[in-house]
Simulated scan of single mutants.
Amino acid sequence: MPIDAAKAVAAEPRSAEIGWDHKDVQLYHLGLGAGVPATDPDELRYTLESRLHVLPSFATVAGAGMGVVGGLSAPGIDIDLAAVLHGGQSITLHRPLPVSGRAVSTSRVAAVYDKGKAAVLVLRSEAADDDGPLWTSDAQIFVRGEGGWGGDRGPSERLDVPAREPDATVERPVREDQALLYRLSGDWNPLHADPEFAKLAGFDRPILHGLCSYGMTLKAAVDTLLGGDVTRVRAYRTRFAGIVFPGETLRIRMWRLAGPDGGPDGGPEGQVDGRNGAPDGQADVPAGGRIQITVTAVERDDAPVLADTVVDHS
Protein backbone atom coordinates (compact mmCIF):
# COMPACT_ATOMS: atom_id res chain seq x y z
CA MET A 1 0.00 0.00 0.00
CA PRO A 2 1.44 3.39 -0.97
CA ILE A 3 0.36 4.81 2.42
CA ASP A 4 1.90 3.20 5.50
CA ALA A 5 -0.30 4.79 8.16
CA ALA A 6 1.74 3.66 11.17
CA LYS A 7 5.01 4.80 9.61
CA ALA A 8 3.56 8.17 8.56
CA VAL A 9 2.15 9.01 11.98
CA ALA A 10 5.30 7.83 13.80
CA ALA A 11 7.66 9.86 11.60
CA GLU A 12 9.63 12.69 13.16
CA PRO A 13 8.10 16.14 12.53
CA ARG A 14 9.78 18.29 9.91
CA SER A 15 10.70 21.86 10.76
CA ALA A 16 11.53 24.84 8.57
CA GLU A 17 11.97 28.53 9.15
CA ILE A 18 9.41 30.71 7.43
CA GLY A 19 9.11 34.45 7.11
CA TRP A 20 6.71 37.07 5.79
CA ASP A 21 6.32 40.83 5.64
CA HIS A 22 3.62 43.38 4.85
CA LYS A 23 3.88 42.75 1.10
CA ASP A 24 3.02 39.07 1.54
CA VAL A 25 0.03 39.99 3.70
CA GLN A 26 -1.20 42.66 1.27
CA LEU A 27 -0.84 40.30 -1.70
CA TYR A 28 -2.83 37.63 0.15
CA HIS A 29 -5.60 40.08 1.00
CA LEU A 30 -5.78 41.33 -2.59
CA GLY A 31 -6.03 37.71 -3.72
CA LEU A 32 -9.16 37.42 -1.57
CA GLY A 33 -10.75 40.42 -3.29
CA ALA A 34 -9.88 43.03 -0.67
CA GLY A 35 -9.57 46.67 -1.68
CA VAL A 36 -13.03 47.29 -3.17
CA PRO A 37 -13.81 50.17 -2.88
CA ALA A 38 -10.13 51.10 -2.90
CA THR A 39 -10.50 54.12 -0.60
CA ASP A 40 -12.92 52.55 1.88
CA PRO A 41 -11.34 52.86 5.36
CA ASP A 42 -12.48 49.33 6.20
CA GLU A 43 -10.71 47.95 3.13
CA LEU A 44 -7.55 49.97 3.75
CA ARG A 45 -7.00 47.80 6.83
CA TYR A 46 -6.30 44.99 4.36
CA THR A 47 -4.35 46.91 1.75
CA LEU A 48 -2.46 49.89 3.22
CA GLU A 49 0.74 49.13 5.12
CA SER A 50 0.26 51.96 7.62
CA ARG A 51 -3.12 50.54 8.74
CA LEU A 52 -2.54 46.87 8.06
CA HIS A 53 -3.96 44.00 10.08
CA VAL A 54 -3.66 40.30 9.23
CA LEU A 55 -6.61 38.06 8.44
CA PRO A 56 -5.96 34.84 10.42
CA SER A 57 -6.40 32.62 7.36
CA PHE A 58 -3.09 34.07 6.14
CA ALA A 59 -1.60 31.23 8.18
CA THR A 60 -2.50 28.86 5.31
CA VAL A 61 -0.09 30.63 2.94
CA ALA A 62 2.61 31.92 5.30
CA GLY A 63 5.85 30.41 4.09
CA ALA A 64 4.05 29.37 0.87
CA GLY A 65 2.07 26.69 2.72
CA MET A 66 5.10 24.54 3.40
CA GLY A 67 3.28 22.55 6.11
CA VAL A 68 1.09 20.74 3.59
CA VAL A 69 3.98 20.20 1.19
CA GLY A 70 6.06 18.68 3.98
CA GLY A 71 3.24 16.39 5.04
CA LEU A 72 2.71 14.96 1.56
CA SER A 73 6.41 14.03 1.38
CA ALA A 74 6.54 12.42 4.82
CA PRO A 75 7.87 8.87 5.32
CA GLY A 76 5.15 6.31 4.61
CA ILE A 77 3.40 8.61 2.09
CA ASP A 78 3.88 7.68 -1.57
CA ILE A 79 0.89 8.87 -3.54
CA ASP A 80 -0.15 10.19 -6.93
CA LEU A 81 -0.83 13.90 -6.50
CA ALA A 82 -3.51 13.64 -9.20
CA ALA A 83 -5.54 11.58 -6.70
CA VAL A 84 -5.33 14.25 -3.99
CA LEU A 85 -8.25 16.48 -2.98
CA HIS A 86 -8.29 19.11 -0.23
CA GLY A 87 -11.20 17.98 1.91
CA GLY A 88 -11.12 20.43 4.80
CA GLN A 89 -9.11 23.04 6.64
CA SER A 90 -8.92 24.28 10.21
CA ILE A 91 -6.86 26.86 12.07
CA THR A 92 -6.51 27.55 15.77
CA LEU A 93 -5.00 30.95 16.59
CA HIS A 94 -2.88 31.22 19.72
CA ARG A 95 -2.53 35.00 19.35
CA PRO A 96 -2.99 37.62 16.61
CA LEU A 97 -0.66 37.28 13.64
CA PRO A 98 1.97 40.02 13.21
CA VAL A 99 2.21 41.99 9.98
CA SER A 100 5.78 40.76 9.55
CA GLY A 101 7.68 38.04 11.28
CA ARG A 102 9.76 34.91 11.26
CA ALA A 103 8.71 31.60 12.75
CA VAL A 104 9.55 27.93 12.83
CA SER A 105 6.91 25.82 11.15
CA THR A 106 6.75 22.17 12.25
CA SER A 107 4.72 19.75 10.15
CA ARG A 108 3.70 16.15 10.62
CA VAL A 109 1.05 13.61 9.69
CA ALA A 110 -1.28 13.78 12.70
CA ALA A 111 -3.61 10.98 11.56
CA VAL A 112 -4.44 8.67 8.65
CA TYR A 113 -8.03 7.49 8.27
CA ASP A 114 -9.48 4.72 6.13
CA LYS A 115 -12.66 5.86 4.37
CA GLY A 116 -12.97 2.71 2.26
CA LYS A 117 -12.48 4.10 -1.25
CA ALA A 118 -10.12 6.80 -0.06
CA ALA A 119 -7.63 7.60 2.66
CA VAL A 120 -7.68 10.85 4.61
CA LEU A 121 -4.43 12.40 5.77
CA VAL A 122 -4.55 14.98 8.54
CA LEU A 123 -1.51 17.16 7.90
CA ARG A 124 -0.76 19.35 10.91
CA SER A 125 1.53 22.37 10.94
CA GLU A 126 2.37 24.40 14.02
CA ALA A 127 4.13 27.74 13.91
CA ALA A 128 5.92 29.50 16.74
CA ASP A 129 8.23 32.49 16.99
CA ASP A 130 10.46 33.76 19.79
CA ASP A 131 7.37 34.82 21.76
CA GLY A 132 5.69 31.42 21.61
CA PRO A 133 3.04 29.59 19.55
CA LEU A 134 1.28 31.47 16.75
CA TRP A 135 -1.08 28.98 15.12
CA THR A 136 -1.95 25.33 14.62
CA SER A 137 -3.31 24.37 11.22
CA ASP A 138 -4.82 21.10 10.03
CA ALA A 139 -5.37 20.23 6.36
CA GLN A 140 -7.60 17.22 5.70
CA ILE A 141 -6.39 15.64 2.47
CA PHE A 142 -8.43 12.99 0.62
CA VAL A 143 -6.41 10.52 -1.42
CA ARG A 144 -8.68 8.66 -3.80
CA GLY A 145 -8.15 4.93 -4.22
CA GLU A 146 -5.94 4.53 -1.15
CA GLY A 147 -8.44 3.27 1.45
CA GLY A 148 -9.66 -0.20 2.27
CA TRP A 149 -6.96 -1.54 4.61
CA GLY A 150 -9.30 -1.82 7.60
CA GLY A 151 -8.03 1.19 9.52
CA ASP A 152 -9.87 3.68 11.71
CA ARG A 153 -12.50 5.58 9.72
CA GLY A 154 -11.99 8.68 11.85
CA PRO A 155 -14.52 11.36 12.74
CA SER A 156 -17.39 12.24 10.44
CA GLU A 157 -18.96 15.35 11.91
CA ARG A 158 -21.68 17.13 9.96
CA LEU A 159 -23.42 20.26 11.22
CA ASP A 160 -27.14 20.84 10.82
CA VAL A 161 -27.94 24.27 9.45
CA PRO A 162 -29.85 26.31 12.08
CA ALA A 163 -33.61 26.16 11.50
CA ARG A 164 -34.02 29.92 11.26
CA GLU A 165 -33.13 32.72 8.92
CA PRO A 166 -29.45 33.71 8.84
CA ASP A 167 -28.36 36.67 10.93
CA ALA A 168 -26.53 37.98 7.88
CA THR A 169 -26.26 37.07 4.20
CA VAL A 170 -23.70 38.68 1.93
CA GLU A 171 -22.61 38.07 -1.64
CA ARG A 172 -19.01 38.34 -2.71
CA PRO A 173 -18.06 38.36 -6.42
CA VAL A 174 -15.07 36.33 -7.57
CA ARG A 175 -13.17 38.29 -10.20
CA GLU A 176 -12.22 36.62 -13.47
CA ASP A 177 -8.54 37.08 -12.62
CA GLN A 178 -8.79 36.22 -8.92
CA ALA A 179 -7.25 32.75 -9.10
CA LEU A 180 -4.33 34.19 -11.09
CA LEU A 181 -3.69 36.71 -8.33
CA TYR A 182 -4.29 34.35 -5.41
CA ARG A 183 -1.82 31.77 -6.73
CA LEU A 184 1.00 34.31 -6.34
CA SER A 185 0.76 33.65 -2.58
CA GLY A 186 2.26 30.21 -3.18
CA ASP A 187 -0.20 27.70 -4.66
CA TRP A 188 1.09 27.26 -8.21
CA ASN A 189 -1.14 24.32 -9.15
CA PRO A 190 -1.91 24.83 -12.88
CA LEU A 191 -5.47 23.63 -12.22
CA HIS A 192 -6.20 27.22 -11.21
CA ALA A 193 -4.64 28.92 -14.23
CA ASP A 194 -4.12 26.62 -17.25
CA PRO A 195 -7.30 25.80 -19.25
CA GLU A 196 -5.70 22.73 -20.85
CA PHE A 197 -4.63 21.32 -17.49
CA ALA A 198 -8.10 22.00 -16.08
CA LYS A 199 -9.67 20.01 -18.93
CA LEU A 200 -7.38 17.08 -18.19
CA ALA A 201 -8.64 17.23 -14.61
CA GLY A 202 -12.26 17.13 -15.81
CA PHE A 203 -13.19 20.83 -15.60
CA ASP A 204 -14.36 23.11 -18.39
CA ARG A 205 -12.02 25.84 -17.20
CA PRO A 206 -9.69 26.60 -14.27
CA ILE A 207 -11.28 26.61 -10.83
CA LEU A 208 -10.70 28.87 -7.84
CA HIS A 209 -8.48 27.66 -5.01
CA GLY A 210 -10.52 26.23 -2.15
CA LEU A 211 -8.36 28.17 0.29
CA CYS A 212 -9.26 31.37 -1.55
CA SER A 213 -12.97 30.73 -0.88
CA TYR A 214 -11.95 29.89 2.69
CA GLY A 215 -10.21 33.24 3.14
CA MET A 216 -12.97 35.22 1.41
CA THR A 217 -15.51 33.68 3.76
CA LEU A 218 -13.54 34.52 6.90
CA LYS A 219 -13.10 38.10 5.70
CA ALA A 220 -16.86 38.37 5.15
CA ALA A 221 -17.56 37.06 8.66
CA VAL A 222 -15.03 39.42 10.27
CA ASP A 223 -16.29 42.45 8.35
CA THR A 224 -19.99 41.67 8.83
CA LEU A 225 -20.35 40.20 12.32
CA LEU A 226 -17.07 40.90 14.17
CA GLY A 227 -16.79 44.63 13.63
CA GLY A 228 -13.80 44.24 11.32
CA ASP A 229 -11.64 43.06 14.25
CA VAL A 230 -9.44 40.18 13.04
CA THR A 231 -8.02 39.69 16.55
CA ARG A 232 -11.37 38.30 17.75
CA VAL A 233 -10.98 35.14 15.66
CA ARG A 234 -9.86 32.19 17.80
CA ALA A 235 -10.45 29.26 15.43
CA TYR A 236 -11.88 28.66 11.97
CA ARG A 237 -12.73 25.44 10.19
CA THR A 238 -14.53 24.28 7.07
CA ARG A 239 -15.25 21.35 4.78
CA PHE A 240 -14.77 21.92 1.05
CA ALA A 241 -18.08 20.85 -0.46
CA GLY A 242 -17.80 22.02 -4.06
CA ILE A 243 -15.90 24.08 -6.61
CA VAL A 244 -16.02 27.73 -7.61
CA PHE A 245 -15.25 29.15 -11.04
CA PRO A 246 -13.71 32.63 -11.38
CA GLY A 247 -16.44 35.06 -12.37
CA GLU A 248 -19.05 33.48 -10.08
CA THR A 249 -20.53 34.92 -6.90
CA LEU A 250 -20.30 33.46 -3.41
CA ARG A 251 -23.45 33.64 -1.27
CA ILE A 252 -22.34 33.57 2.37
CA ARG A 253 -25.01 32.89 5.01
CA MET A 254 -24.06 33.42 8.66
CA TRP A 255 -25.73 32.51 11.95
CA ARG A 256 -24.66 33.91 15.33
CA LEU A 257 -24.42 31.20 17.96
CA ALA A 258 -23.29 31.30 21.55
CA GLY A 259 -19.94 29.88 22.57
CA PRO A 260 -19.13 26.17 22.43
CA ASP A 261 -20.29 25.62 26.01
CA GLY A 262 -23.68 27.25 25.70
CA GLY A 263 -26.83 27.36 23.62
CA PRO A 264 -27.22 29.59 20.56
CA ASP A 265 -28.55 33.11 20.62
CA GLY A 266 -31.44 32.15 18.39
CA GLY A 267 -32.74 29.12 20.29
CA PRO A 268 -31.89 25.44 20.70
CA GLU A 269 -32.34 24.67 17.03
CA GLY A 270 -29.05 26.43 16.30
CA GLN A 271 -26.85 24.54 18.72
CA VAL A 272 -23.85 22.95 17.08
CA ASP A 273 -22.66 20.12 19.29
CA GLY A 274 -22.26 21.37 22.86
CA ARG A 275 -18.48 21.01 22.88
CA ASN A 276 -15.57 23.27 22.23
CA GLY A 277 -15.33 22.43 18.54
CA ALA A 278 -11.57 22.63 18.09
CA PRO A 279 -10.26 20.26 15.39
CA ASP A 280 -9.25 16.80 16.59
CA GLY A 281 -6.06 16.94 18.65
CA GLN A 282 -5.83 20.72 18.70
CA ALA A 283 -5.95 22.90 21.78
CA ASP A 284 -9.39 24.07 22.85
CA VAL A 285 -10.24 27.67 22.07
CA PRO A 286 -11.44 30.01 24.83
CA ALA A 287 -15.17 30.23 25.43
CA GLY A 288 -16.87 32.99 23.50
CA GLY A 289 -19.12 33.29 20.49
CA ARG A 290 -19.51 31.20 17.39
CA ILE A 291 -20.59 31.87 13.84
CA GLN A 292 -21.85 29.03 11.67
CA ILE A 293 -21.62 29.59 7.92
CA THR A 294 -22.70 28.07 4.63
CA VAL A 295 -21.28 29.17 1.28
CA THR A 296 -22.88 28.51 -2.11
CA ALA A 297 -22.37 29.54 -5.74
CA VAL A 298 -25.16 31.91 -6.79
CA GLU A 299 -24.98 31.29 -10.53
CA ARG A 300 -25.29 27.50 -10.14
CA ASP A 301 -28.52 27.49 -8.11
CA ASP A 302 -26.75 27.74 -4.76
CA ALA A 303 -24.46 24.77 -5.40
CA PRO A 304 -22.53 24.01 -2.17
CA VAL A 305 -19.03 25.47 -1.85
CA LEU A 306 -18.18 25.38 1.88
CA ALA A 307 -20.05 23.37 4.52
CA ASP A 308 -19.67 22.61 8.23
CA THR A 309 -18.01 26.00 8.56
CA VAL A 310 -17.48 27.54 11.99
CA VAL A 311 -15.70 30.64 13.31
CA ASP A 312 -15.05 30.65 17.06
CA HIS A 313 -14.41 34.12 18.41
CA SER A 314 -13.99 36.20 21.54
Rank of each mutant, 00 (worst) to 15 (best):
Y113D: 14
A38K: 09
F245V: 10
L55R: 00
G228Y: 07
A110P: 11
V9D: 09
P75G: 07
G227C: 08
F203T: 13
D229N: 12
K7H: 13
K7E: 15
H86W: 10
W135G: 05
G186Q: 07
M66C: 06
R253S: 15
Y46T: 02
R251I: 02
F142D: 01
K23D: 13
D40M: 07
D302G: 03
A62W: 03
S73W: 02
H192E: 11
S185E: 03
I293V: 15
A168H: 10
D301V: 07
T224H: 05
L44E: 06
L208P: 04
E43N: 08
S50P: 08
D114I: 04
L27Q: 05
E43Y: 05
P166M: 08
K117P: 15
A287W: 03
L191T: 11
A10K: 12
V311G: 04
D131N: 14
A193V: 12
D284M: 14
G215L: 00
A59D: 12
D223S: 10
P279Q: 10
D130Q: 12
F197K: 03
V230M: 04
R172S: 10
V285Y: 08
G267K: 12
I252W: 04
A220M: 09
I243W: 02
T39M: 12
W20F: 07
V36T: 12
S105H: 05
E196F: 11
G35T: 03
G116S: 14
G88F: 01
G202E: 12
Q292G: 02
A179Q: 03
G266I: 07
L184K: 01
S156Q: 14
S107D: 05
D308A: 08
V161Y: 01
K23E: 09
E165F: 00
A8T: 06
A201V: 05
R205D: 14
Q178W: 01
G242P: 07
P2K: 09
L72K: 02
A258N: 15
T136C: 11
G270F: 14
P264D: 15
L181M: 09
D80I: 01
L200Y: 07
F142Q: 08
A16E: 13
I291K: 00
D131P: 05
A74H: 02
S100A: 15
E171I: 03
V122M: 10
L181V: 14
L218K: 00
L306W: 03
R164V: 07
Y28M: 08
E146G: 06
R205Q: 14
L306H: 04
G147P: 01
A103D: 08
F245P: 02
P13D: 11
